[in-house]
Simulated assay, not measured.
Amino acid sequence: MQDFNIQDSIKGIWDKLEGWMDTIILGLPNFLLAILVFIIFIFIAKYVGKIFDKIFHRSIKQDSIRQMAVKVIKAIVVLIGFFIALGLLNLDTVLTSVLGAAGVVGLAIGLALQGTLNNTFSGLILSFLPELQIGDWVETNGFAGSVMEINLRNIVIKQSDNNYVIIPNGKIIEEPFKNFTRTARSRVFVNCGVGYSSDLEMVRDLTIKTIEDIFPQRGNEEVELMFQEFGDSSINYVLRFWTDVSKNRDILIAQNTAIIAIKKAYDAKGINIPFPIRTIDFTNKLSINKNSD
């Protein structure tokens, strides 16, 4: 009786092995094809990565972002090959399970790293924006300076006082920023005032002529002077003219040059730039009464 049970057990194991061998033999072509497809997609990912690296090299100056973008593209291509290989093996159930697990894991990671992922994707967006490049002079989030670095987490700005400011990428995407470098020329403003006794038309013509000689205007550009108000001690105006500007310092230099030139021109013509003064008028005379003996 015992020998009979052992023989049945051996026969059952052998039948199982035969069934597995049949399955392996029948599935071997698909298995080899799946491996071949997966290897092909690995090579495709490699060459696609090189192509996109050359493309990104023209538009993305930051190496870390370019390398990360290439790695993401290569990983996507490899995953496509992996899913196609699973389909060739008729592992639809496994494929569905993998996709479901990936979705759950991705959701959990997304919730845990919400801020970090926001900055990462914002960094990828910023790397493709022509409005913001390394070396540009920008104003954003209350800071102004030259963009020194754009990475997957933040941008680094070097201010005019030589200090560095690190701003998260999400803040740059969400908040407006002003880029001085993207426009070759900008309008500069200078405020001034002249005395009430001045000939305003002569002041206007002289000021415009002085600025035009220093800052030649192009095309439709022009020097504009508009009187704004009757001040306490002067009639005030705003002067506007165009010049080459790539950073905030260029504006300060242009304003400095314009103010010096205007002062010299006014001094030569005897035009007064008044400053607030206070006049004290004593209307009553002081008298000392002396008692006579």
Rank of each mutant, 00 (worst) to 15 (best):
M1C: 06
Q2G: 11
K11M: 02
G12M: 05
I13S: 04
W14I: 12
K16E: 02
E18D: 05
E18R: 13
G19W: 02
D22M: 02
F31R: 05
F31T: 15
F31H: 10
L32T: 15
I35L: 15
V37G: 03
V37K: 03
F38D: 07
I39S: 08
I40R: 01
F41S: 04
I42L: 08
F43T: 04
Y47T: 14
V48Q: 04
K50Y: 14
F52S: 06
K54D: 08
F56E: 01
Q62W: 04
D63L: 14
R66H: 08
A69F: 07
V70K: 07
K71I: 11
I73K: 02
I76E: 02
V78R: 05
I80W: 03
G81L: 09
F82W: 03
I84C: 06
I84T: 08
I84S: 02
L86K: 03
L88I: 12
N90S: 11
T93A: 07
L95D: 00
L95W: 00
T96A: 12
S97M: 10
V98S: 03
V98C: 06
G100Y: 08
A101V: 15
A101N: 10
A101K: 05
G103W: 04
V105T: 10
V105D: 00
L107W: 07
G110R: 00
L111Y: 10
A112H: 00
A112R: 05
Q114T: 12
T116V: 07
L117A: 01
I125R: 08
P130T: 11
V138Q: 02
E139H: 07
T140I: 13
T140A: 13
G142I: 11
F143W: 08
A144R: 07
G145A: 01
S146T: 13
I150H: 02
Q159H: 01
N162T: 13
Y164L: 13
I166K: 14
I167M: 10
P168R: 09
N169W: 04
N169T: 04
I173V: 13
E175C: 09
E175M: 10
E175G: 05
F177V: 01
K178S: 04
T181R: 06
T181Q: 03
A184S: 13
S186V: 07
G193D: 00
V194S: 00
L200H: 00
L206T: 14
L206W: 01
E212H: 08
D213R: 14
Q217W: 09
N220K: 14
E221R: 07
E224Q: 13
M226K: 14
G231K: 09
G231I: 10
D232G: 15
S233K: 09
I235T: 10
I235N: 00
R240F: 01
W242N: 08
D244W: 08
R249F: 06
R249V: 10
I251H: 06
I251M: 09
L252M: 12
L252C: 00
I253E: 15
Q255Y: 06
T257N: 15
A261M: 05
I262P: 01
K263F: 12
K264C: 00
A265Q: 05
G270M: 08
I271F: 11
I271M: 03
P274E: 03
P274F: 10
P274W: 09
F275D: 04
D281H: 15
F282S: 08
T283Y: 11
K285W: 04
L286V: 10
N291F: 15
